[in-house]
């Protein structure tokens, strides 16, 4: 039972900005929504959760053929399939988290307008479900490292930090976009386009070393740049992101987190009336 001795309901403008206690009390629901998201996604599909691995693998094959073999994009001396797959695991996570997290409120009107629960759980659960897919594609990455005989160095300890950086970015983006999508349907049309641009601004198919060094800190205003470079450095021994890049990315990710959370929270009250 969720203990609720006295609850006072007030107009939305009196709501506290931070409602962590409320979120914690309903945490069972977050796990349930995450479980449901994963469960439903692969129901009535033959390959099921295998898709979480097959999608980035498929992209890796295509990219390796076109960009690695034909266009011969440099990869800082790393085997191109490994180079591109490492980045694809992270990018696919971000793309899926943002795509599904952004639509989480607008595409669940039957939940939002019919029942009370902290609305934040909808985008959060979408992000967590994407994280489960990320874990699956990391398993495939481990197998690839074995095949290529690459042994990760001690840099592997930064992995949790890479994940935290991406999580902050995803939560911030989803908070803003989910609230926007609930009110303005235009987001549905703009988002795939934005995600595509975002991918081109991330060193997925090409290395950061192609960008002039003086511009690296600007380039890293996209937190995914530092995330991808840090992972490549940790696992494959690529070029580590510079201090300036880490600073740029961390600042942007934190600002996004605070801004996205507040933006969503301020519009939480109106969501049931507009979705």
């Amino acid at each position: 039972m969720i203990p609720r001795p006295t609850t006072v309901l007030l107009p939305a403008e009196h709501w506290p900005v931070l409602n962590l206690g409320e979120l914690w009390r309903h945490r069972d629901l977050l796990w349930m929504l995450t479980w449901r998201g994963i469960h439903v996604r692969y129901k009535q599909s033959v390959i099921g959760a295998g898709w979480a691995i097959l999608q980035p693998l498929g992209l890796m094959v295509v990219f390796s053929v076109f960009f690695g073999l034909i266009v011969k994009i440099p990869s800082d001396g790393i085997a191109y399939p490994l180079f591109v797959y490492t980045a694809l695991t992270l990018w696919q996570f971000m793309a899926r988290a943002v795509q599904e997290g952004a639509g989480a409120v607008a595409l669940n009107p039957h939940l939002v307008s019919k029942i009370y629960f902290p609305r934040w759980y909808l985008p959060l659960a979408a992000i967590l479900a994407a994280a489960v897919d990320l874990a699956a594609s990391f398993l495939a990455l481990a197998v690839m490292l074995l095949i290529y005989g690459v042994l990760p160095g001690p840099g592997i300890i930064v992995l949790p930090l890479v994940f935290v950086l991406m999580l902050a970015t995803a939560i911030g983006c989803c908070g803003f976009l989910a609230a926007m999508w609930a009110i303005y349907r235009d987001v549905a049309h703009v988002l795939p386009f934005l995600l595509q641009i975002w991918m081109f601004c991330t060193p997925v198919i090409y290395p950061t070393s192609l960008v002039p060094e003086a511009w690296h800190w600007v380039y890293a205003l996209n937190p995914m740049v530092t995330a991808v470079d840090a992972l490549r450095w940790a696992l494959l021994g690529g070029i580590p992101p510079s201090a300036a890049m880490v600073a740029s990315s961390t600042t942007v990710a934190l600002l996004l987190l605070v801004f996205g959370y507040r933006w969503f929270r301020k519009r939480e009250g109106v969501m049931p009336d507009v979705v």
Binding site: V8, L9, L10, P11, S113, K114, I115
Partner: peptide, 22 residues
């Protein structure tokens, strides 16, 4: 049921609410 907030006014609830609404 807390589904949507009031525009004005105040509600005080003691105890847990169960909604057989939709």
């Amino acid at each position: 049921a807390r589904i949507t907030p009031p525009t004005e006014g105040r509600i005080e609830i003691q105890g847990r609410i169960g909604a057989l609404i939709e």
